[in-house]
């Protein structure tokens, strides 16, 4: 999976594609793991293009969160649309992740962390 990735002030910023489901889960998991292992574990995932997520996709995000926290980092989510947010609320993952409206808010939070 080709994820859009850049680094800003030591924060890995990744934009996920439109769909994160069972077909993409293994590749996405591996790509995010590589980024986390190669960086400092401080990450922002931008979901503004992501319209379709299933439980496999959620597991990818949870696994990445755990990997980041093992490096004393964290994984912030941004750009979540109403439908994907509903899935996070149903699964209670909105209480596990720190979720911000946009990337600049997440970057500010990292700067203050």
């Amino acid at each position: 999976m080709n994820l859009a990735h850049r680094t800003e002030n030591g924060i890995d910023i990744v934009k996920l594609p439109r769909q994160l489901g069972m077909a993409d889960a293994a590749d996405a998991r591996a790509a995010l793991k590589d980024i986390i292992n190669g960086g400092g574990g401080r990450m922002i995932i931008d979901l503004s293009d992501t319209e379709i997520v299933d439980s496999s996709g959620l597991a990818v995000l949870v696994g990445s969160l755990q990997a980041a926290r093992k490096k004393d980092g964290d994984l912030y989510l941004t750009g979540m649309g109403n439908t994907v947010r509903a899935l996070f609320e149903l699964t209670r993952l909105h209480t596990v992740f720190q979720i911000f409206d946009d990337e600049s808010a997440a970057l500010r939070a990292w700067a203050e962390a």
Binding site: D54, L58, A59, G63, L87, T91, R92, L93, T95
Partner: peptide, 15 residues
């Protein structure tokens, strides 16, 4: 029930 926060599986049927 929905599994706990950082569970890696088990969300499909609750959804």
């Amino acid at each position: 029930e929905m599994p706990g926060g950082e569970a890696m599986s088990g969300r499909g049927w609750p959804i």
